[in-house]
């Protein structure tokens, strides 16, 4: 009997130990696993390595865990908009590895696809290339990049079923599908949790095989970083 449904975020993250490596879905604050991040804050899990495109803002997303010094290392492509992050980075409390965004996405995809390394042109001739193997294919130089995998992947989807099949919404998809596949244990939080058969199999983004635990999240804030609107003409 497949049993993936857990009560809530606290139950879902119960066994994440100190010093674990986590993948955390989202781009900016869009598509982040709000409930799991709040549960990690409550539990006080320390020494975390977080693989996430961004590091949240001062008082939301991964920013909350930075404030309480629960994060030891960030692996990201862009970490602006966060003063506490900047302070900890400059004081040496926090370690940061910056990776080109497409390389980050592909390293995670490779991790979930069983491909230990691949070649990309991004970063050739830059400090990103330092210490990395390069090879020339058809006259162009490429860098070898290795897969990324995680002890736990925390992803956020719009809808999911009890077998772990997931559907994302809008640009909240971003890094979530690759991270779902690259986690040793993948925890999905969803806005709507339904029974098998209720989601159209044609529309599934993440097949349930990648998801180990799933729960219906609550009180989604879905904070907006840059609220930009036009007036009605």
């Amino acid at each position: 009997m497949i049993h993936k449904v857990v009560k809530n975020a606290d139950d879902a993250i119960r066994d994440i130990p100190d010093n674990a490596t986590l993948m955390v879905g989202g781009f900016g604050l869009s598509g982040i696993p709000e409930n799991c991040l709040a549960a990690l804050l409550r539990k006080g899990t320390k020494g975390l390595t977080c693989i996430s495109n961004n590091a949240g803002v001062d008082d939301f997303g991964i920013g909350l865990l930075l404030k309480t010094h629960q994060v030891r290392k960030m692996i990201s492509s862009y970490v602006g908009e966060n003063e506490e992050f900047e302070r900890q980075l400059l004081s040496g409390e926090l370690e940061v590895e910056l990776i080109p965004q497409g390389t980050l996405a592909e390293r995670i995809r490779a991790g979930g696809a069983g491909i230990p390394a691949f070649f990309t042109p991004a970063g050739v001739g830059t400090e990103v290339a330092e210490g990395k193997e390069t090879r020339t294919f058809e006259g162009k130089v490429y860098l070898m990049e290795r897969w990324l995998r995680a002890d736990y992947s925390l992803v956020k989807a719009w809808k999911g079923d009890t077998l772990g099949n997931l559907i994302y919404r809008g640009t909240a998809r971003n890094f979530n599908p690759m991270m779902a596949a690259a986690g040793t244990i993948t925890i999905a939080e969803v806005e709507e949790l339904v029974q098998p058969g209720e989601l159209d199999p044609n529309t599934i983004h993440t097949p349930g095989i990648y998801v180990h635990r799933i729960f219906k999240g609550s009180n989604y804030e879905k904070r907006i970083e840059q609220r930009t609107v036009r007036s009605i003409r």
Binding site: G28, L29, K222, I224, T228, V229, R230, S231
Partner: peptide
């Protein structure tokens, strides 16, 4: 950019703008 009534947190650009 959306009108005020169409703002959707699940729909942003690379600059994190709605």
């Amino acid at each position: 950019f959306p009108t005020e009534d169409k703002v959707d947190p699940d729909l942003i650009n690379a600059g994190k703008q709605t």
